[in-house]
Design a protein around this nucleic acid. Structure first.
Length: 422
DNA sequence: CCTCCACAGGAAGCGCAGGAGT
DNA sequence: ACTCCTGCGCTTCCTGTGGAGG
């Protein structure tokens, strides 16, 4: 596949012009259908150019609604203005530090560390750079949280800096209350400069786990990003098509289909772009001159398999074993008699637990107790990998009936691959 | 109607790892 | 470097719950 792509590139027959614009990390210069969100963020953050501390913002919305893209876009524009001496005559100092809290920055300590180690704070022209008096290792780790706090405070004040901290996936931070308190307290203790926070989350419930003080701190301003609908997705796709593909390689009916699939998936633009990219790859791989509707359809199947694979293969071992046991029991056929009322394949939690114990013995792994097995089932249901229903009439006692969300053969294959089974 | 069955899920406690405080 | 603390994954124990069967 990869070599295929290279060959097409060499022969100049590829469909892609620049595949990187289809990556989920790419932020285009123009963000369609997010004008009002952009101007709201600008209104909120704007006062920073007059050296007034902007309000903290909390942004939420489902995945693929452009939250991160909008914030990154605005901070990039802000930086552009600040760095332009003609526009920034008063030489206001502004820095934006972005981090995704899911990957490694999930505690207040890690976040503070990341801010201090960020290259934008350690470049030329700043006083008392946080990394200045560190040892040869060039790392700040090893310092206490209070020390980190002091350093940040001193740095912000000494440079009269207006710092914006962007916390993407802020719900992943374990001690979010502490962190928010600490970051805002800096403003009370310094006479020049400021620290403000932009929190991004796709969990609507995140606000509820904060204590009321942190809530009012972070949510001085709130913004909700609505899912894109199909024709909005279509124009997003069209924009990326122009940037990423050569001219005329896709029919508008194909674009329409991708948009429709995207709209079905909670208006997720990231998903739609992934479909577009995959469809392009498939078309190119099979030597098509254009991306056909069939390419899009098979791309959907492929992308969904990929997503299922990503979810399952990152699951803890025992949850994977549970899935495997369910799949295997379904393939072999249930030992118990099926419910007449339901034609679909349904299993009893008891028989699945027995299968799970057998698989564990087979793998030479110690099995968990029934109690924990039930927790696994609930977790897997949360992830949409299976559905549980309570047993009604015709079943003895009070049991969960288990239905697998994906074809058992596919699940079995994925788990086998992931756990290295035969 | 009562008892038993086959579970669900709460509560408490245990061992462990990693982080914080000294 | 050392101990203390805390969160996490898990087990043990226990109380419900709802239908089957006598």
């Amino acid at each position: 596949m990869v070599s295929n792509l290279f060959e097409s590139e060499l022969s100049g027959g590829g469909l892609f012009k620049d595949a990187s614009v289809l990556s989920p990390h790419y932020v285009p210069d123009r963000l369609p259908h997010r004008k009002s969100e952009i101007s709201q963020i600008i209104r909120i953050i704007g006062p920073i150019l007059r050296e007034t501390k902007p309000n903290n913002v909390f942004v939420y919305g489902k995945t693929g609604t452009g939250k991160t893209a909008v914030i990154r876009h605005v901070t990039r524009e802000l930086k552009r203005v600040v760095d332009d001496p003609d526009k920034n005559k008063k030489n206001v100092k502004v820095e934006c530090v972005y981090m995704n809290c899911r990957v490694g920055y999930n505690s207040k300590y890690q976040v503070l560390l990341k801010i201090l180690e960020d290259e934008s704070l350690n470049r030329q022209g700043y006083e008392k750079k946080p990394m200045e008096d560190r040892g040869k290792k060039g790392k700040l780790s090893g310092l206490s949280p209070t020390e980190l706090y002091e350093r940040l405070k001193v740095f912000v004040e000494a440079n009269n800096l207006n710092l914006v901290v962007v916390l993407d996936e802020v719900d992943m931070i374990k001690d979010a209350d502490d962190l928010l308190y600490i970051l805002t307290r800096i403003n009370d203790e310094i006479s020049s400069g400021s620290v403000s926070i932009m929190g991004i989350s796709n969990k609507f419930s995140f606000k509820d786990v904060l204590d009321s003080r942190s809530k009012s701190t972070l949510c001085e301003e709130e913004l909700v990003f609505k899912p894109y609908h199909a024709n909005q997705l279509k124009s997003i796709l069209t924009q990326r098509l122009r940037l990423g593909f050569k001219k005329g390689v896709i029919a508008s009916s194909s674009v329409g289909l991708i948009s429709a699939y995207g709209a079905q998936t909670n208006g997720d633009a990231r998903y739609a772009l992934r479909l577009l990219k995959k469809a392009g790859e498939l078309a190119q791989g099979s030597g098509h001159k254009r991306i056909t509707v069939d390419d899009v359809k098979s791309a959907k199947v492929k992308v969904e398999e990929d997503i299922t694979f990503e979810i399952i293969s990152t699951l803890p071992e025992h949850q994977q074993i549970v899935l495997y046991s369910i799949a295997q029991t379904l393939i072999r056929g249930s030992a118990y008699k099926r419910l007449d009322a339901s034609p679909e394949a349904v299993l009893f939690s008891g028989e699945v637990y027995e299968a799970y114990e057998r698989v564990c013995t087979q793998l030479n792994v110690k099995s968990r107790t029934m109690r924990w097995f039930r927790e696994y089932l609930n977790d897997l249901e949360m992830l949409g990998l299976l559905t549980l229903t309570v047993s009604g009439k015709g079943v003895r006692g009070n049991t969960s009936l288990i239905r697998l969300g994906n074809p058992p053969e596919e699940v079995k294959k994925i788990v086998s691959e992931s756990l290295g089974l035969t």
